[in-house]
Amino acid sequence: MEIYRSAADLEAALGTEIGPTDWLTVEQSRIDLFADATEDHQWIHVDPERAAGGPYGATIAHGFLTASLVPYFMNKLRTIEGIRMGINYGLDRVRFPSPVRAGARIRARATLIDLRKLDDGAVQVTNRVTIDVDGSAKPGCVVELLARYYFADAAGS
């Protein structure tokens, strides 16, 4: 777990990879709950019997389910202290190079790839987050996560 206390700490971390996290198992029950929440009940996600004969040999997690776990993993990788507020600002370049089969274990690592100081006193950071799939040569998800942090002191120092 990395701890950052200022914009200067974040800036010093540019280009540094943190992680990986511990493994998290993606159970069929989580996939089913995500399907219910998003109304995406495609058989490749929710029908284990049919999916067994499909292209992946099992049901797979929705790509957006995998991406939705990025904040969970980021909270396991780092803490930012001394902020009044932190917000998710968006995502860039979301890719799903490999499926995440039901029952697979995933973990994440992140690299801070950009930092910009904004006029309103916020610091905008971009982290490239890679979600590894146990036993797969390719990651299940690679995303650039944009976040804004407002430090308690307006200068962010």
Rank of each mutant, 00 (worst) to 15 (best):
R5W: 01
A7F: 02
A8H: 07
L10M: 11
A12K: 12
G15W: 08
G19Y: 03
P20Q: 09
T21M: 04
L24T: 06
V26G: 05
Q28A: 02
S29A: 14
I31D: 01
D32M: 04
L33H: 09
L33D: 13
A37M: 15
E39R: 15
H41K: 12
I44A: 06
E49Q: 06
A51D: 12
A51G: 11
A52T: 14
P55W: 11
Y56T: 14
F64T: 09
L69W: 11
Y72A: 11
L77Q: 03
R78A: 10
T79H: 02
I80T: 14
E81S: 13
E81P: 07
I83D: 01
R84Y: 01
M85H: 01
G86N: 05
G86K: 11
G86S: 13
G90W: 02
L91N: 07
R95C: 08
G103I: 10
G103T: 12
G103H: 09
G103W: 04
R105D: 02
I106V: 15
A108F: 05
R109H: 03
A110G: 06
T111S: 03
I113N: 02
R116W: 00
K117A: 06
L118A: 07
D120S: 00
D120K: 06
G121D: 09
G121L: 03
A122H: 02
V125H: 00
T126A: 04
R128E: 15
R128Q: 15
T130Y: 04
D134L: 14
D134M: 13
G135C: 11
G135T: 14
G135S: 10
A137H: 12
L145V: 00
Y149L: 14
Y150S: 09
Y150E: 08
F151E: 12
A155E: 14
A155W: 01
G156C: 10
